[in-house]
Design a protein around this nucleic acid. Structure first.
Length: 425
RNA sequence: GACCCUAUCGUCUAGCCUGGUCAGGACACAAGCUUUUCAAGCUUGGAACACGGGUUCAAAUCCCGUUAGGGUCACCA
């Protein structure tokens, strides 16, 4: 039975690279009908922080990467100590002060068949005696990692390429301990747009940053799985379907550049196809945060606006900017916009349109369009000559959804008010 | 510097293992269609096998080298 693990260190937030590693482990477990272990590697008591751990767990859950078992290394110090004692007793390790070091045999060929890269070989001459237990009594990374992977029954260690050179050292530890060596697979790294390492300078690197910027978890997951692997011609794919197709052998070896444009496009695809009620649930807190709506704002109205805009958003935050005018009580038109409206002699058509919309029996898309079209015909205008100024007057923007749909969602009162305000001042 | 990994459109990739399909798809870009604007959508287009040697009737695919990029060399993880 396949058993994999993701072992983050709570010395920082869960970043994009870590999330991709977790994702591939998770997908491999699902594809093989195996299980997934989440292990917090908090042996560095100084740098590990509970808030980071909470953030990592939260991000994992948000992404939908559930775990079957959970461990914290800080609760397992006695196990590492016992294993180290055993090695000292067997003469495979020695003490240096209070630290314990592994004796590394010279001139040995250490080889492993990487799941992704094939055969990789190292010479033990390049490896010096390894610290197993540090002077302060805490285990060194490689040691706690090996002890845990072995005792937890991890069958496949799938991790970043940056761990390749740790692997021969760890194989030596497995052998000294008499544990079965698992299969290793080293994933290519994710680079920034400039080909350099992903860093704070790159912009958003934490999963929680993407959440805050209005990305949907399934979109981030979908984009991340495309970095180093391909589900085929159809790239928009659910995690479940992707797992069914996933093969670790098909993961490629080249580092991939993170492309924000494609992530946004992917996110836009999910928003467009997303359930309006769910999108509304996600948007309401943002709208409140921005002070665009009051606690009591009618939900149906928000949903109507979401429905109107969800096909033209890349991130949830786009909604705030583009649909904000729908919720604003009054629209303050810039001098530029006023000048543009004033340049054309539109006071009469605006006045008539406002009047007729106000008197109409019903106020919906069809009614607005009918009134508008009749007025334009009556005045002998080209509809475009009135459509654009009206859009500008009611939304303060030259772009947006269909004008009549926009009017319907804006509502009679605001539509009429804004038409009049455009020329009364 | 030593050791290790890698190399297909600008970017993500399919194809490589088991040599022989106009090197396929996606993002981005350009054009057209549609249209009350912008998007979306649909159609079309430009765009790549790092370089040099081999092996072979035939190389993106196998081998070697060069170059370039990346990773690791902690009592951090």
């Amino acid at each position: 039975m396949v058993k994999v693990r993701f072992a983050p260190s709570p010395t920082g937030y869960l970043h994009i690279g870590g999330a991709r590693t977790a994702l591939f482990n998770w997908m491999y477990a699902k594809a093989q009908g195996g299980s997934f272990v989440l292990r917090v590697e908090d042996t560095d008591l100084e740098r590990s922080k509970p808030e980071y751990e909470a953030e990592i767990l939260d991000s994992m859950a948000w992404l939908g990467l559930t775990w079957d078992e959970f461990y914290k290394q800080s609760e397992r110090f006695t196990i590492y100590k016992q294993q180290a004692e055993k090695l000292v007793d067997e003469g495979k390790a020695y003490r240096d002060g209070t630290a314990v070091l592994l004796k590394v045999e010279k001139a040995r060929l250490i080889r492993f068949d990487d799941l992704i890269r094939g055969l990789i070989e190292f010479n033990s001459d390049e490896i010096k005696d390894q610290v197993l237990m540090k002077s302060d009594g805490s285990p060194a990374y490689s040691f706690s990692c090996v002890v845990d992977d072995a005792l937890m029954g991890i069958t496949h260690v799938i991790r970043g390429e940056d761990h390749i050179s740790n692997t021969p050292k760890q194989i030596l530890i497995y052998e000294a301990l008499g544990f079965k060596v698992p299969k290793f697979g080293h994933l290519p790294l994710i680079m920034g747009a400039d080909g350099a390492r992903l860093s704070k300078r790159f912009g958003a690197v934490a999963v929680s940053d993407y959440r805050g910027e209005g990305f949907l978890p399934e979109a981030l997951v979908n984009y991340l799985m495309l970095l180093g692997w391909s589900p085929g011609t159809q790239e928009i794919i659910s995690l479940q379907n992707a797992c069914a197709k996933f093969s670790i052998k098909k993961v490629n070896k080249t580092a991939a550049q993170f492309n924000m444009e494609k992530l946004k496009w992917t996110n836009g695809q999910y928003i467009k196809a997303g359930d309006t009620a769910r999108l509304t649930d996600l948007l309401i807190p943002l709208l409140r945060e921005e002070g665009l709506i009051a606690e009591t704002h009618e939900r149906a109205h928000i949903e109507a606006a979401v429905q109107l805009f969800k096909g033209r958003m890349l991130t949830l935050r786009d909604f705030l900017e583009r649909a904000g005018f729908i919720f604003a009580k009054e629209l303050s038109l810039s001098g530029e916009i006023k000048a543009e409206l004033g340049a054309k002699d539109l006071a009469r058509p605006f006045g008539l349109l406002a009047e007729r919309l106000e008197k109409a029996g019903t106020f919906d898309v069809a009614a607005a369009e009918k009134i508008f079209r009749e007025l334009v015909a009556e005045l002998g205008m080209a509809s475009g000559d009135l459509v654009h100024p009206v859009r500008l007057a009611i939304s303060a923007s030259t772009v947006g959804p269909g004008l009549f749909e926009t009017m319907a969602v804006l509502g009679r009162e605001r539509t009429v008010g804004r038409l009049r305000a455009a020329f009364n001042t």
